[in-house]
């Protein structure tokens, strides 16, 4: 049966910490010994993404310096309550994924599936909040062409929203994996990759929120 009995499925093996060194390889490097969660290729993307967002954050601060009053006025049109609620939603989504991954490791696969669905619910609520917030801005005649503040606001939160939607797809794939009767060979790496990407969505928002809603 599909993920209905936590005791029937085989536990996922934790990937080996590091391949055993051979005489040819020499001793393992202290820099590369250890377990990288998920796929190494995903980490290259994640670190690149974090670098690009780092540039975005710097651009925001510099542009703010060129238009302090414009950015202050822009900030005051944003609903800080929405920003706080969205931050708490994504943090909650992250802890649900952490608990979900713990449930996977303890072979509680039905519970893992439920926790990951809970994380998807927080992502859905975030997207709804964002749609309401954007709708209010457009309703008030504020759009990306209004001034530099709104150009950056719509661009950066829009790019983040795309990340969130990709993260939701990843969570959906993770739910399917936890419901498989027999875990596949690469399931653990795929689950860890999905979880890592979801935490990235949280991490990026943690910086976007104070920039736009608090220090602008």
């Amino acid at each position: 049966m599909l993920g209905t009995d936590d005791e029937e499925v085989q536990p996922l093996p934790r990937p080996a910490v590091a391949a055993a060194p051979t005489a040819k390889d020499g001793p393992p490097s202290r820099w590369t010994s250890g377990h990288v969660p998920g796929e190494v290729g995903l980490w290259i993307f994640i670190l690149g993404d974090m670098l690009v967002f780092g540039l975005f954050f710097g651009i925001f601060i510099v542009q703010r310096g060129d238009g302090l009053e414009e950015f202050r006025a822009g900030r005051e049109t944003l609903s800080t309550e929405f920003g706080v609620a969205n931050t708490v939603l994504l943090l909650t989504g992250s802890i649900l994924v952490v608990l979900g991954m713990r449930a996977v490791r303890e072979n509680r696969r039905r519970l893992a599936s439920q926790l990951l669905l809970g994380a998807m619910a927080t992502g859905t609520m975030f997207a709804i909040d964002k749609a309401i917030e954007w709708g209010e801005k457009f309703g008030d005649g504020l759009n990306p062409g209004t001034n530099d503040f709104y150009t950056l606001y719509f661009a950066f939160t829009g790019i983040h929203l795309v990340h969130l939607l990709i993260g939701m797809v990843a969570l959906g794939v993770m739910v399917r994996l936890t419901r498989r009767p027999t875990p596949g060979e690469h399931d653990q790496a795929l689950l860890e990759s999905g979880a890592t990407f979801w935490h990235l969505v949280d991490l990026l928002w943690l910086v976007l929120f104070p920039l736009f809603y608090l220090v602008a």
Partner: peptide, 30 residues
């Protein structure tokens, strides 16, 4: 207050990366 908000933000980022993304158990390089 603005500087304090930025510092708190990156402390939060560090915890999310280290603990939620499991970087604390990863390689020294990462």
């Amino acid at each position: 207050g603005g500087v304090a908000v930025l510092v708190i933000t990156f402390v939060k980022v560090w915890f999310v990366g280290r603990h939620f993304m499991d970087i604390r158990e990863s390689t020294l390089l990462l």
